[in-house]
Amino acid sequence: MQLLVIGASGRTGRHFIEAALAHKHRVTALIRKSSDLAPRTGLDNVYGDPRDPQALAVLLAQKDGVVSCLGQTSSKDDHLLRDSSAALIGAAKGREALRYIVVSQGLQFPTRNPMLVFLRWILAKYVADTADMETLLQQSALDWTIVRPPRLLEGGPPSGFRTNLGAMPPGRRSMQRADLAALLLELVETGAHRRQIVAVTAR
């Protein structure tokens, strides 16, 4: 497959690229700023703004799927997820069958857990931006899947993943980024859970 990865230089994006290359896919990595993500066989790095619909329209040519692992990294990113999704929707006009997988967050699920309520308050701008992004996608004609993970960990051994629709799966409230990347690749390869919100956690 020919894949475009948005937010490719982040921790989840890097894991996804490794998994996609291992499956012999061709990957174009859209990178917002300087990165040590080195080009190699099967991987092309492109620097650009994911909020630019004209740039995205060029990158979408001949692509089979798009995976967005974008996350906010500064105060200037208050509307990054919303604006990048709006740009992608605009860029994909006429190509609504294009597969689009986007990483959201488990905090979008309603909760009475005091710790999660506190986190939603601390991360209010990020939560709002993510909610706006999800609303845009659900109102679009794109072939989207929204993935809501729990707290993401780095460096531990992969343990696999469990998914659920409508609520977080019972059990652990964290997972390895490598396992999230494995789910993203499975979704783009199989076309499962079209126009659905998928909750995921560690197995």
Rank of each mutant, 00 (worst) to 15 (best):
G156K: 12
A92P: 01
D143L: 07
L107F: 06
I146S: 01
I197M: 05
W144P: 04
L119V: 10
G166A: 06
D77A: 04
P53R: 01
G90D: 00
H25Y: 15
A199E: 01
A97L: 01
A178F: 01
K33H: 14
A202L: 06
L180V: 13
V117A: 11
F16I: 08
A181C: 05
W121T: 14
V67G: 00
T201R: 04
L59Y: 07
P53M: 00
L21T: 11
M1H: 11
P110C: 12
I89A: 00
V103T: 06
I17F: 08
S35I: 11
G171R: 07
S140R: 00
R177D: 04
L142C: 05
L88R: 02
D77P: 03
I197A: 08
G106P: 03
R148Q: 15
P114G: 08
I31Y: 04
R40M: 15
G171L: 12
R203G: 08
F161G: 01
L137D: 02
T145I: 00
L136I: 15
G71P: 02
Q139E: 14
A61T: 06
D77C: 03
A97P: 01
D49F: 07
R177S: 11
T163Y: 03
F161S: 05
A91Q: 00
G94W: 00
D143N: 09
R40K: 13
L70C: 13
T163F: 02
M115E: 15
S34G: 12
D132I: 05
L43Y: 12
M175N: 05
S9A: 15
A182F: 03
V67M: 08
V27D: 13
Q72I: 06
A57S: 07
T145F: 02
R162T: 07
V67S: 05
F109L: 14
I17V: 11
D143V: 04
I31H: 05
L187H: 15
K76L: 09
G166P: 03
P53N: 00
I122M: 13
D36L: 12
V147H: 03
R162V: 11
D132G: 08
V188D: 03
R51Y: 00
E18Y: 07
K93H: 10
T163C: 11
L60Y: 01
L81R: 03
T28V: 07
Q139A: 12
A124M: 11
L180I: 13
V200I: 12
A124N: 10
V27F: 10
R40G: 09
D78H: 10
D143A: 08
P157V: 10
S75V: 14
L59S: 07
A124G: 04
G156I: 09
D36H: 09
E134G: 08
S104I: 02
V200E: 04
A92T: 00
I17D: 06
F161Q: 02
D78T: 11
Q72L: 11
D132R: 12
T111I: 06
R51T: 09
L56C: 02
S104Q: 04
V46C: 07
P53G: 00
A29L: 13
Q72K: 15
Y100H: 04
V117N: 12
R120F: 06
G42F: 10
R177N: 10
P50Y: 02
R151G: 12
A57T: 01
L88H: 01
S68Y: 03
H23G: 10
